[in-house]
């Protein structure tokens, strides 16, 4: 009711400024950089390579391993203990599941593709930025994938449905829901949908539609990033 204008002056369906690059890490097989507003994600892909310990190997197809990590100084300096946490473990898992539907790993039995996502600066929407960067990195690594994945968070602040929440909005003093989404670009299938907070059915459908439109824009930026590497 009171949320007529967004805190940073954007329109309700407007994204923060986006910047994307491919091939930013020299020693990695593939890498990507994705910046949306103040959130920065780097992703590096290594492999396919041999997988040890051996009990993790799957003789039918390869596996992917995702490691999501927010650097200790990345947000407000309050997440000071470095390394994994329950939160990062969960996000690693959902990122892995968001990326798996596009990959064909049957050509790489007993092997692994490692994806490392690092966030040196964060302002909400980190898992979405991470997925976008990882998708660029996978394509850059020359891995066979039927499609690319793009991701954005949608949600509501008070009674307004919004796209791409920043941290101030997530922490706004009103009912807020944050819904990270990931779409396969071509088929528009949803490969990630989580929800934090509550939202009505009507608002959720509206939010997903807005997210779909936003992802179209993001997918264009991802493509440009990859093509620019070879210009």
């Amino acid at each position: 009711m009171n949320y007529k204008k967004r805190l940073d002056g954007r329109k309700f369906d407007e994204l923060r400024p986006i910047e994307a690059k491919a091939g930013v890490i020299a020693r990695a097989d593939g890498s990507g950089y994705f910046k949306i507003g103040n959130t920065i994600a780097y992703a590096a892909v290594y492999g396919p390579r041999e997988l040890y310990p051996r009990f993790m190997q799957n003789p039918e197809k390869g596996i992917i391993r995702v490691n999501y990590n927010m650097l200790p100084f990345s947000s407000k300096g309050n997440r000071v203990r470095p390394g994994g946490s329950r939160r990062s473990q969960e996000i690693s898992m959902v990122t892995e599941k968001a990326l798996l539907p596009v990959l064909d790993l049957s050509e790489f039995p007993n092997s692994v593709i490692d994806i490392f996502i690092e966030l040196p600066q964060t302002d909400a929407g980190t898992r979405c930025a991470g997925i976008c960067a990882a998708s660029i990195a996978l394509a850059d690594a020359g891995i066979t994938m039927k499609d690319m994945v793009s991701s954005i968070s949608v949600g509501r602040v008070d009674d307004q449905v919004v796209v791409d929440l920043n941290y101030d909005e997530e922490a706004y003093d009103a009912p807020v829901a944050d819904v990270p989404l990931a779409f396969l670009n071509k088929s528009k299938e949803i490969s990630l949908l989580q929800m934090d907070g509550d939202i009505t059915e009507e608002q959720l459908f509206k939010a997903v539609e807005m997210g779909k439109k936003a992802c179209e824009k993001i997918s264009k930026i991802q493509r440009e990033a990859l093509k620019n590497k070879y210009k």
């Binding site: 097989d29 390579r49 891995i143």
Partner: peptide, 23 residues
């Protein structure tokens, strides 16, 4: 549809993508 990052090559009626990277 392309399934790899690469250059398009048209060989008569056959379309293929020559990869630019990869193991």
């Amino acid at each position: 549809v392309a399934s790899q990052l690469g250059l398009v090559r048209i060989d008569g009626k056959v379309i293929k993508v020559i990869p630019l990277s990869g193991k």
